[in-house]
């Protein structure tokens, strides 16, 4: 089996995000970059399939600037075999542009399954996986919390509001991973050492012009919270009064 996993490098979720001087992008000078947390579930799932099915290879693909290499190496350290970086400038790329670049490279590769994380925790778009599937005319299920491979097909579970869909898709297919799909492993020291030496296939593609752009960024209005009603159970009646009469929410 040939599995592709598309990954993105994102700021650590603990990072305090600072808006840059242009007010349209974030200041990247002080950011700790990590492999997108949802992509870890995608990589883990691919590796678990590889451990079960002999002859499976896992290739990691990322679109981004040079620094993305560290996220790719993290995926290799977890157990991926090959890696491709579609190298771009260090600028904000819209989802269609990224999806088009990925589809252009993927169309020349062999694959049975293409994994994504359900969203990158930077722009929170949830777009690139389904877009790549459409551009390659492949079935896609996004996001999933359970996966079973059968001959030539995959059965997955997708959580929707108030229920779960059981979906069967033919292969090749695009699948995007949600939290709960598995427990991503920590790379072993040996994996980390090997990942450092692994060659990364760098590609350049003609990028589309952006279809959508950020014109302004701002911080959300800060709440004027901080009103302590009181201590312990004695404060409860007053809280109930405030919820009814002031906030009018109950």
């Amino acid at each position: 089996m040939k599995i592709l996993v598309c990954v993105k490098q994102v700021p650590d979720t603990e990072t305090k995000i600072k808006i840059g001087a242009d007010k349209k992008s974030i200041d990247t000078s002080d950011i700790n970059w990590i492999l997108n947390p949802y992509d870890e579930y995608a990589v883990e799932e691919a590796i678990q399939i590889k451990e079960e099915k002999e002859g499976t290879t896992v290739t990691v693909i990322s679109v981004g600037p040079e620094r993305s290499v560290s996220a790719i190496r993290n995926a290799i350290a977890m157990g991926a075999d090959e890696a491709v970086l579609i190298k771009t400038e260090d600028i904000y790329l819209d989802s269609f542009t990224v999806a088009k670049a990925l589809a252009d490279v993927i169309k020349d590769l062999e694959y049975d399954l293409i994994f994504f994380g359900k969203q990158a925790v930077d722009d929170d778009n949830l777009q690139v996986g389904p877009m790549v599937a459409e551009l390659l005319n492949l079935p896609c299920v996004s996001p999933i919390a359970d996966l079973k491979l059968e001959n030539g097909s995959v059965t997955v579970k997708r959580e929707i509001e108030g229920g779960t869909e059981v979906i069967e898709a033919s292969l090749p297919a695009v699948i995007s991973a949600d939290k709960g799909l598995n427990e991503p492993r920590y790379p072993a020291l040996r994996g980390i050492m090997m990942a450092k030496r692994k060659p990364i296939d760098e590609k350049q593609v003609d990028m589309e012009t952006a279809k959508i752009e950020i014109v302004q960024m701002a911080y959300p209005q800060s709440r004027e919270g901080g009103k302590i009603v009181g201590e312990g159970v004695d404060a409860v009646p007053e809280l109930v009064r405030l919820l009814r009469e002031e906030a009018k929410v109950v």
Partner: peptide, 15 residues
């Protein structure tokens, strides 16, 4: 919102 609401962004379309 972006970054889970740490930043709010305005978008314009070119398409």
């Amino acid at each position: 919102p972006m970054y889970a609401g740490k930043v709010i962004a305005d978008y314009h379309f070119n398409s």
